[in-house]
Computed example of a mutant assay.
Amino acid sequence: MNIPLREAGPNEAGRGQSPHRRGVIPALVAWWGPRPYTQLALVLVILAGLWLLGQNIAAALEKAGISPGFAFLTRAASFQIGESVIPFSAGDTYLRAIGVGVINTLRVAAVGCVLAAFLGTALGVLGLMGNPLLTRLVRIYVELIRNTPLLLQLFFWIALARNLPGPKQAVHGGGIWLTNRGVYVPAPVVEAGWLWPLLASLAVIIAVLALRRFAGVRRGTWPVALALIAGLFWQAGLAFDIPALKGLNVRGRLVLSPEYAALLVALVVKFSAAIAEIVRAGILSVPEGQREAARTMGLSDWQIMRLVILPQALRVIVPLTTSVFLDLTKDSSLAVAIGYPDLVSVLNTTANTTGQAIEAVLIMAGTFLMLNLGVAALMNHYNRRVALRGEGRR
């Protein structure tokens, strides 16, 4: 049966066309939305208010003898930073001091996200294993941690860290020493230096990604790559520096200060409870028929969880876990309460010594914005991969 085609009217001719075919003005009107003059007037009022606010702030700073701007970043800082990955002294610039704060924030946020993800996933899975005692213990942990403030938990952990015994009476085992001077852990050491093994490992990873993307080689690529990387570091003389008591103190290459250790533990414990609930909800969202079908195929409970349940639950887990990682990164700013020199602490000291409080707040907000956007971009990329894999199985 042939259906006669009707000629499109003048109002229908532009539907479904790209903005370039409709013209610049109609596309701009469609992007701007209804009542463009009202919205334009509102935007102008907001901009005028911000301009007046800026003028008042500039006048107040001028009366106080403070010139607004970021020229202070090149001046020498007049304070020390107690914990720094890169060398820093009081004669270095404020810009370098802020860089130290950013690195310290990244240290605790990155490690905290990884450890919280592992601990939260383990707790979420263990809480659904069917053991009544284990399930109750996980529920008690989750409810206790989620319903107490992070700042209170942070004070608890820093008090515990500072009241640990001295080096001679320290609690130790497996190469880990817990003392009131810090937590000493085994550190990897490469006799030939870290540079060429890291560069070679990066080349191996790039080669694997190229094989998977362009050659379609997927099976067994990552195990082979990990074996090659391990061989590279072994060839370079990889060893571990084990802390030991020498004289009146424990000696070791890698020591975590009490402030860093307390902040890291507080963040991991707090946000692992949230991730455990997310993992539990994601697992329960998978239909029971998936488990029954897997059992009929002879899979064990561990294989069912690893191969059937968790891959499907990731569609629910990953987006919510992204929010948890963002909260963890932002809440690392509570380090200022216990004296850990993160970005907020360094910028607070910068504002007090220079008087550039507004500039310090702007740098702080911009830095945390960039960090969170980076975390969100990585997690969204992984979320898209999970979604694409899920669609490919249908």
Rank of each mutant, 00 (worst) to 15 (best):
L232D: 07
F271I: 00
L164F: 10
G182V: 00
Q290R: 00
N249W: 04
R253T: 12
I278L: 06
F155K: 00
G282V: 03
G175Q: 01
F240M: 12
G166E: 07
L248S: 15
A262I: 13
F155N: 04
R253S: 14
F156R: 01
Q235M: 12
A203R: 03
F233D: 00
L226D: 09
W177S: 01
R251W: 09
V224E: 01
A207E: 02
Q169L: 13
G174K: 01
L284K: 10
G231L: 10
R280Y: 07
G247C: 10
I283G: 10
V250C: 11
R253Y: 08
A261L: 01
P243K: 00
V250H: 10
A159R: 01
L264T: 11
L209W: 08
W196C: 01
I158Y: 07
A215E: 06
I176M: 06
L238T: 00
E288G: 15
A210W: 15
G174M: 04
L264D: 09
N180T: 06
W196Y: 10
S272Y: 09
G289A: 02
A192C: 04
I242K: 06
S285V: 03
G174P: 11
L248E: 15
A159G: 14
G193I: 07
A293Y: 05
A276E: 01
V185F: 09
A200Q: 10
R213M: 12
S257R: 00
A262W: 06
Y184T: 01
P165Y: 05
G174W: 04
A159Y: 15
I278Y: 02
Y184C: 03
L263T: 12
G247E: 05
R291Y: 07
L160Y: 05
F156P: 01
A274S: 13
T221E: 13
S257A: 11
R212V: 07
R218T: 14
W194D: 06
A159P: 08
A261F: 14
V190E: 02
R291F: 08
F240I: 10
F233Q: 01
L226N: 11
L198T: 09
S272L: 02
